[in-house]
Amino acid sequence: MLHIVNKSATERSTLESCLRMATKGSAVLLIEDAVYAATNGNAAAAKIQAAAADLKIYALGPDLAARGMAGRVLDGVNVVDYGGFVDLVAEHSNCQSWL
C-alpha cells in the first residue's frame, strides 16, 4: 500500500497518524509541505529515519526544490519526480492520502 502525506510534520500530526497505521513493507510518499520532514535537522527527521527501517520512504523532488530543501534530504529517503509518483501509485494495489 502507498501512503501519501502532504502536511508539514512540524505543524500537524498527519505524518504521525500515517506512520502508526502504515504496515511493514508499505511505502510513504511525502509531497507538498510534508517534504520538510525528510530534511536534515527537522524535528520529525528521527521519526522518518526510524520508520525507514520498516517502510520505504519517498519525497517528491519538485516540492523539495520549490522549498529550498533539495540539498538537505535525509539519507534513506528516495527522491522521486512526478513520474516516480505515478509509478508508485501504479505499483501499489491501493493508496491513501492522509489529508
Binding site: N94, C95, Q96
Partner: peptide
C-alpha cells in the same frame, strides 16, 4: 487496535479519506 485497523486498510480496493 491500530494493527487491526491497519490490516483492514491494506485489504481495501479504494480508500477515500475525508
Amino acid at each position: 487496535s491500530v494493527d487491526e485497523m491497519a490490516n483492514l486498510m491494506v485489504e481495501q480496493d479504494v480508500v477515500i479519506s475525508f
